[in-house]
Design a protein around this nucleic acid. Sequence first.
DNA 1: GTCTATACAGGGATAGAC
DNA 2: GTCTATCCCTGTATAGAC
Lengths: 203, 203
Amino acid sequence: MARKTGSHSEITGPRIRAAAQHLFARHGYAAVSMRQIAAEVGVQAGALYLYTPDKQSLLADLMRDHLEGLLEAFADLPPASGPEARLDQFARFHIGYHIDRPDAVFIAYMELRNLEPDNFSAIEALRRRYENALEAILRDGRAAGVFAVPDTKLATLALIAMLTGVTNWYREGGRLGRAEVEAIYADMARNAVGSPARVQHTA
Amino acid sequence: MARKTGSHSEITGPRIRAAAQHLFARHGYAAVSMRQIAAEVGVQAGALYLYTPDKQSLLADLMRDHLEGLLEAFADLPPASGPEARLDQFARFHIGYHIDRPDAVFIAYMELRNLEPDNFSAIEALRRRYENALEAILRDGRAAGVFAVPDTKLATLALIAMLTGVTNWYREGGRLGRAEVEAIYADMARNAVGSPARVQHTA
DNA sequence: GTCTATACAGGGATAGAC
DNA sequence: GTCTATCCCTGTATAGAC
């Protein structure tokens, strides 16, 4: 099309969100200006406000979309039976999902302090739902005697921190392949909560 | 208001750094203004420039001081013999040191993006020295046959991510005490790298 | 639907009075 | 050593032309 003034609302909206995600992840929400986002998309700053009420909504929407997608994808996993299989599945899923979305993950974990109170509460609720899914696995495993965790909440947070840390260094095409990384992390996660293959001692 | 006529350079400098640390940790470097820092200290914005060349140096100094203090404290630990004892010591030290300095830790891990290239390189070098200390323990343990880690670099990063995650939720006076948290994390760390069953837990 | 132009607040940093 | 005053830039957001 020769004309630049046609309707692009269906393409411009997603492009704005993509640019915002990329820039927020790279420089941080507070350090990124609406002008930068607009420049990346190829529109003027004022035009952004046709697609978002303000900068804060742009951030909150990115985080909510990410967490809702995460929960949905997790819910869609095939059922696994037994705490060990479920933990293995969780670890591999978590690694794989996060490796594929480094920008969204980075934002979701780093920009919480830049959310206004209402948005913060909503995002925290989603995050907690995900954590609860892992904690349920650990509780079941402890009840079944296959996991030795003194505190399931603490173990949940420790495992998620460990697994999420992969996004700090993993690069596509790097020394280790995706499947290798998933396997190694899944093993470490299972060992961390007391692999049944060895006798566990808890004071 | 009566004018303050005395010299305060020896007290104002540290107070500026303390205020900056507190505000950077809470709101993020990019979101904090020099005027806010000055207000917290009780001076005018212009006065800050008697103590720091610019805002960037304030950030870089905080991060460098933190990491240098971390390395120094780690070097001062009493010698431990054997990879398992050394890993246990590392885990407890890491948790304890980080729990005591939530603001400094938060900044050191979250504000890397806001460092200018030269400062970033310097900070990264310090961080790598610390990671290398842990990796040496894991390598020795693998060579000795007490740790089962397919990749020591990956395991190093996974353990540090797990241990550092404690700062995301630990609060003084919370449900779990400091010693309990250290013990639980040290156990998880040791298990994660495949410590054999013979390890004794000293309560 | 997108543009230019702009309002208005606030940013970092400096100069010079006291 | 700290202040006031200020420079100049950049921030978010809006108004109105096309």
